[in-house]
Design a protein around this nucleic acid. Sequence first.
DNA 1: AGCATTTCTTAACTTAAGTGAACGAGATTG
DNA 2: CAATCTCGTTCACTTAAGTTAAGAAATGCT
Lengths: 204, 204
Amino acid sequence: MASITHDSDNKIMKNILFDFISKYISLTEEEKNVLLSLDIFRSIKKGTTLLKEGQKSKESYFVLKGCIRTYYILDGDEKTTAFYTEMEALTPPCVISKTPSEYYVSCIEDSILLISNSDMEVEVNSKFPKFDTMCRMLTEELLAKERIDFDEFKTSSPEQRYLNLIQKRPDLIQRVPQHQLASYLGIKPQSLSRLRARIVEKKS
Amino acid sequence: MASITHDSDNKIMKNILFDFISKYISLTEEEKNVLLSLDIFRSIKKGTTLLKEGQKSKESYFVLKGCIRTYYILDGDEKTTAFYTEMEALTPPCVISKTPSEYYVSCIEDSILLISNSDMEVEVNSKFPKFDTMCRMLTEELLAKERIDFDEFKTSSPEQRYLNLIQKRPDLIQRVPQHQLASYLGIKPQSLSRLRARIVEKKS
DNA sequence: AGCATTTCTTAACTTAAGTGAACGAGATTG
DNA sequence: CAATCTCGTTCACTTAAGTTAAGAAATGCT
């Protein structure tokens, strides 16, 4: 897998990462160097598949730049269930359960990711309990967010979900193909087209 | 809030708790005693509201026996979004975000809960890094489960969701009122009634 | 540039969920 | 015990999503 090409990018990404971490814990220069020595920055081309159904994996992804999505193949067609963009983290369930993956993860834009390995995490966490604390805090936050998103999904109609998405993640509507957005909203692409037409109709 | 009345119950609950913890970390007798000294077992009556919309709270719940649910009041009616039963944990989002709660938590059966306070957790975690590790592992597991559940919800119809529920949590269908189940499945009570009739129809 | 494939939209039709109302069974209460 | 309330079901009707198909637009490929 390719590493970062431009040193300037590398510097920018380091800063983004350390800024993010500083929201949870404070790091000494030495600790920063330990992190960097792990060499976890990866530059990934659009269209690259990071994980396939049936595969076993220990990799977690943190998006520094770009966008990845998770999707299932059910009855022969793709069902996209999630998008992860800047400052979002994904540890696929198969990494936690240590079973073959149920879904695919792929890169839908040229991206810069931080890819870590769970063995590596265990080692770092045991050496630096701080990281353990940070991971706990981050995961607690992600779980709280996920539950709120799920609740919102359950309590609203496809049209409300779409309007909600426009408010909360307007970028997604621009950067993601409609048919992937549709399954993300729990409907068929045709229904999303119709729903959009209906909204435009209402406005006028 | 009432503590546990019967010593026999208390012993049983201690064992259930320590069995559960032993899946993640091993505890010395001393550590077990520290945990117990926190006096976190609570016996809660059916119908008790544990958290109200608009309230600030630092409490997390772990169900040892019984069932609690989370619900919103939207346009004047209740929307139940989750049930937590034996061995399931809930930290309401408001505890993480430190903002007023968006929803209610109430006890739908006489229950025995473990109720912890986030200040207490911070203290225990800093004294015993082991707990921090356990919380991280548990939360990672919960997040992975939550994401899978959300994915399944998105990719299936109300009927499939109901059939799925019969497979995965048959107890819920028995112990929970239909109208609460309906919103949990993302539909109206009338639709759940109809859907059930449709399934019976198909079988014959 | 030209061809092929994928993606998006539209339309007609089918199916199922939302809505409003009514009814009966149980539980709750004065 | 009667009156009330909640809950689940059923029904008729409305609305929106699923399905199938066709065509237009955009994209990718050589």
